[in-house]
Simulated scan of single mutants.
Amino acid sequence: MDILGWSLIVLLFVVGMAGAIYPVLPGVLAIYAAFFVYGWFFSFGDFDWIFWTIQTLIVVVLFVADYAVSAWGVKRFGGTRASVIGSTIGIIAGPFVIPAFGLIIGPFAGAVIGELIAGKNVEQSLKAGWGALVGLFTSVVVKVILQAVMIILFILWLVF
């Protein structure tokens, strides 16, 4: 049972880190679920209220930051609410429409299309598209760092 428990934990960590890059995967929720899997297979007694508070705060920060950082990128480059909505649709639909490059093309195209629909010119729309990419890449970096912190804290909590 120990092997099954640790296999599930590692699998959830891998899915979680992949989810930082590929938005269709559950990301931070998979990592958070791994803590419960550890508790069910081994012991919840290894984690006190401080552990759960820190990890829950990181989850909340990640959810807020994921949207805020992406929107910041679009707004920083002059985009409007239309490009934020378009880039959000693009990041979800892009990987399905264009499997190999949809993760990058989707938010860019979504932001550009959103701005064009809102009546902006092509130059402003392209600028908002670049902002969507900057926001996406910044968001991925933030997610990877914070999710790695969650995993490292988990390991440190068990070791010390």
Rank of each mutant, 00 (worst) to 15 (best):
I151C: 10
G129R: 01
G129S: 00
I152V: 15
I151Y: 13
V134N: 07
S139C: 14
V144T: 12
G135I: 05
A132P: 00
Q147K: 12
A132R: 03
L126P: 12
F137G: 01
F154Y: 10
K143P: 04
V144C: 11
L146P: 10
G131M: 02
M150D: 00
K127F: 05
K143W: 14
V134D: 02
M150K: 06
S125H: 06
G129N: 05
G129P: 04
V141N: 13
S139P: 04
L136Y: 11
M150S: 04
W130A: 07
S139L: 10
T138G: 15
S139T: 14
G129V: 02
S125Y: 10
V142H: 11
L153N: 12
V134E: 06
G129C: 01
M150Y: 03
L153W: 12
K143M: 02
I145R: 15
A128P: 04
V144Q: 13
I152R: 13
L146V: 09
K143V: 07
S125R: 03
V134Q: 09
Q147N: 09
F154V: 03
V134K: 15
G131D: 01
L126I: 14
I145K: 12
I145S: 04
I151D: 03
V149E: 00
Q147P: 00
F137H: 03
W130K: 15
T138M: 11
I152D: 09
V149M: 10
L136T: 13
V144D: 09
G135K: 10
I152M: 12
A132W: 00
S139D: 03
L136V: 09
A132E: 00
I145P: 05
I151R: 09
L146R: 14
G135T: 09
G135Q: 03
I152H: 08
L153D: 11
G129W: 00
K127H: 06
V142F: 14
G129T: 00
M150H: 04
V144L: 15
T138E: 06
A132K: 04
K127E: 02
V142G: 14
L153F: 09
M150C: 01
V140N: 06
G135V: 04
I145V: 15
G135Y: 06
A132H: 02
F154D: 02
G135D: 00
V140G: 11
M150T: 01
V142T: 14
L146K: 08
I152K: 12
L136N: 05
L133K: 08
I151W: 08
L136F: 15
L146E: 03
V140K: 12
I151T: 11
K143G: 05
V142A: 15
L133C: 06
F154L: 01
I145Q: 07
L136Q: 07
T138I: 08
V149Y: 06
K143N: 06
S139N: 11
W130N: 07
L133V: 05
I145C: 10
V134P: 03
F154E: 01
A132S: 05
I151N: 08
V134L: 13
V134I: 13
T138S: 15
G131W: 10
L133E: 04
L146A: 09
F154G: 03
V142W: 08
A128C: 03
S125F: 04
I151A: 08
A128S: 07
A128W: 08
G129Y: 03
G131V: 07
G131N: 04
V141D: 10
V134C: 07
W130Q: 09
G131Q: 03
F154R: 09
Q147V: 08
W130E: 05
